[in-house]
Design a protein around this nucleic acid. Structure first.
Length: 327
DNA sequence: CGAATTTGACCTCT
DNA sequence: AGAGGTCAAATTCG
């Protein structure tokens, strides 16, 4: 993805083409990822494939973010790509500082005497991410809706989701989804709080779920939703380097505008042991380098050379295909 | 019938 | 006191 100097109109054109192309590749990888995983003959293969695909998806998402951020800054009306930014949590809404594996201290702390509700304390500082997307539900995790509320100054209700596995695993991940407008497709502001600690990363299951739920039913993949980074209320000056895009996988079938459907989404991007969305949640901000460093050992430790070539071949083939059938 | 969602009440923070 | 977040009973769905 080169940004070169061309005449403004050509640049405009070329840029749009580039964005479109990257978006399409993103879609293809994302959609066909489960199939590739299913074809893996071992968990190691699966792991590597997932790592590579995850890296690719993330890189593409970042690229799109950068492209749209730099290009559309001056043209608000122009479409931009869905991005996610590290949210400097609006006021105090960043959840507790428990990292993965931490006991749900806050839940324990909270109710003195009565089993009553509590509000997140300002002391509690966990990771928080926010972003705009047209497809706020398909983010690789399963969520259960636990509330909905009309928020002051907004035209639409905000929906509250928590990890489906909260009860089983004590996973504290939550997210809020708020529709921003009634455009077509409608834009949603999604805020994630807390890391997933449920690690329900059964890659095969995830892949299978994907096959069943997303891929097959997905008749027409949607291009990454378009968004203006600068529209985010969390105006982080360090962008775009912090746009590591927990990448809402952006292919969920378009919801009809208006209501926020209360669906849970099944795994698509997250899966695997090394590339869950958790990695992207902030914890003060994990940056690309960290990701690469973290994942390289896993990748290099896994398969032998011939295995790698297998993947090279497979992935190439995979990427060249336009559909499952082709593949 | 169990699981998921809805919705009004309740709690905490500002 | 108002706003935002969560709980949990009631309702709906598969």
């Amino acid at each position: 993805m080169a940004f070169c100097c061309v005449a403004p109109e050509e640049e405009e054109d070329g840029h749009e083409r580039a964005v479109k192309e990257v978006a399409e590749v993103y879609e293809r990888i994302k959609i066909q990822q489960p199939l590739l995983l299913l074809h893996c003959s071992s968990s190691r293969h699966q792991h590597l494939a997932q790592t590579l695909l995850g890296e690719a998806l993330r890189a593409l998402n970042v690229a799109l973010s950068v492209m749209t951020t730099t290009h559309h800054a001056a043209s608000p009306a122009a479409p931009a790509i869905s991005v996610v930014v590290k949210a400097e949590p609006h006021h105090h809404h960043s959840p507790p500082a428990g990292s993965a594996g931490d006991p749900p201290a806050q839940t324990a702390t909270i109710r003195s005497g009565s089993n009553k509700k509590r509000r997140r304390s300002t002391m509690e500082a966990l990771s928080s991410w926010a972003g705009l997307t047209t497809v706020p539900y398909d983010d690789g995790y399963e969520w259960r809706k636990y509330g909905e509320k009309k928020i002051n100054g907004t035209s639409y209700t905000r929906s509250y989701f928590r990890c489906t596995y909260k009860d089983d695993t004590g996973c504290l991940a939550t997210k809020y989804v708020q529709q921003k407008d009634s455009s077509d497709p409608p834009m949603f502001h999604v805020t994630y709080n807390n890391k997933h600690t449920c690690t329900n990363n059964n890659a095969a299951a995830a892949a299978a779920a994907m096959m069943n739920k997303d891929t097959i039913k997905q008749e027409q993949p949607v291009l990454p939703p378009l968004v203006e980074v600068s529209a985010l209320p969390f105006d982080d000056q360090t962008l775009p380097c912090q746009q590591q895009a927990p990448s809402f996988p952006i292919t969920m079938q378009q919801q009809s505008g208006g209501d926020i459907p209360s669906t849970s989404s099944s795994s698509s991007f997250s899966g695997g042991e090394s590339c869950s969305c958790d990695e992207f949640y902030s914890l003060g901000g994990i940056h690309m380098d960290n990701m690469v460093q973290r994942q390289m050992p896993a990748a290099s430790a896994a398969p032998a050379d011939d295995d790698l070539s297998f993947y090279d071949y497979d992935l190439d083939l995979f990427l060249l295909c336009d559909s499952f059938k082709d593949y």
